[in-house]
Amino acid sequence: MIDMVVNSVWLAGLMFAIGTLGVMIHRHPVIIFMCIELMLNAANLALVAFNRHHFSPAWRTMDGQIYAFLIIVIAAAEVAVGLAIIVALFKHRTRVDIDEINFLKR
């Protein structure tokens, strides 16, 4: 049983790394966004696993899962605003390349 909990944390690390890699190599904003979602989920998985790890008959805390819920709420809000921005970008130009959104540099 312990193996599963520890393995879950390893899995979370792997997923986080894959998400990071995706953010860095992709140019399409929607996919970058999805990678960020993947990273958030990795964090959620770690939280749930740690909660499972630390739960005991003496100390019945479920705060890890509650944090995970709150993260889902915030992720939902972020997706709403982020996708709205991407939609607005799509409306102004046909091609959307994250590398072309560099007005601050210009």
Binding site: T20, V23, M24, I25, H26, R27, I32, I98, D99, I101, N102, L104, K105, R106
Partner: peptide
């Protein structure tokens, strides 16, 4: 260093 590419900044962050 300031390339203006978001992904590049992400790289620095990482």
């Amino acid at each position: 260093v300031q390339t203006g590419f978001v992904r590049n900044y992400m790289l620095y962050l990482l």
